[in-house]
Design a protein around this nucleic acid. Structure first.
Length: 282
DNA sequence: CGCGCCTCCTGTGTGC
DNA sequence: TGCACACAGGAGGCGC
């Protein structure tokens, strides 16, 4: 499930393989793959053909490819999206949605997406920061992320701490897996109310978020199945380092208590019953 | 306006 | 063996 470390791994691969190359052709194989782009496929294609990719940028779980035109390709992988570099002769993937070829005749860029929660769009004049991403907060790996402002906003919210970590307008890039991992490291239950967190506790949590994201980037991300791979089709190996996510019934790596699984926000949450006691409810 | 629930989508695994 | 259903979950939209 692509979160910040997986998207950053893809970004690095794309930067290496497509920066500086000029787009020759674009094929759209599925209508849902083009997101929020009202003018349609023809316009999407026309704005991209003949353009040179200048760079590959990321904020949170969003990627964008600034073009020499000043526009940008904006992408989100959703649940199952992949951006793959493939030789022209490679067989089409079952869920191939968009294909880019380049004027140098080298490897193609393919957007492949089983569940079609992901998609690409063209952002008019979005090379610097696409409008489509303007509402997304900076992520904690961004050197301009404001720790003080984050702590103040977090503590000012009237919600549960895991909900806040998943709020991409507060802090971006954290999804279900890394939220659970950061909460485990911080010894906090996800249902803890944000307005009851002390400043130091909020700062410790942020430090743990940053630490787990950093370690996962080094590992190339977390792959449970074939749905997340880098641009060369390779899996990340951070799943070996997980302490909470997906470990229901297995011993906590700190205290040995079996990890519990709870339903939260219509999805699974994993935590240690002993290290992360549930807050008292009133 | 803040908060939280619902929905989109498809392949895989499980239980009867 | 086959069918029904739960599950995976990011994020936009909408209702309270």
């Amino acid at each position: 499930m692509p979160e910040l470390p997986e998207v950053e791994t893809v970004r690095q691969g794309l930067a290496k393989w497509v920066a500086g190359r000029t787009i020759a052709t674009v094929e759209v194989h599925h209508p849902r793959a083009i997101r929020r782009h009202l003018p349609g496929d023809a316009h999407f294609i026309a704005m991209l053909q003949g353009r040179t990719v200048v760079d590959v940028a990321r904020r949170g779980k969003y990627l964008w490819l600034p073009l020499d035109s000043g526009d940008a390709i904006v992408g989100h992988l959703g649940m199952s999206g992949q951006l793959l570099m493939q030789p022209a002769e490679a067989e089409d993937e079952k869920h191939l949605r968009i294909r880019f070829t380049f004027t140098d005749g080298g490897p193609q860029l393919r957007f492949v997406d089983q569940r079609t929660f992901g998609g690409l769009a063209v952002s008019d004049g979005g090379a610097e920061l696409p409008d489509e991403i303007a509402h997304i907060a900076r992520d904690p790996m961004d050197e301009l992320f404001d720790d003080d402002a984050f702590v103040a906003r977090l503590r000012g919210k009237h919600t549960e701490v895991k909900r806040a970590l998943l709020d991409q307008t507060l802090i971006s890039g954290v999804g279900n897996i890394y939220a659970d991992e950061a909460l485990w490291r911080a010894r906090l239950h996800g249902a803890r109310p944000t307005d009851a967190l002390t400043g130091p506790a909020a700062r410790r949590l942020l430090a743990h978020v940053r630490e787990v994201l950093g370690e996962a980037i080094v590992a190339g991300g977390t792959s449970f199945d074939e749905l997340y791979v880098n641009v060369n089709g390779e899996s990340g190996y951070f799943d070996r380092s997980l302490n909470a996510y997906g470990r229901e019934g297995e011993p906590c790596h700190r205290c040995g208590t079996p990890i519990r699984r709870e339903q939260f926000m219509n999805r699974s949450s994993f935590s240690c019953p002993r290290c992360q006691p549930r807050p008292r409810t009133h």
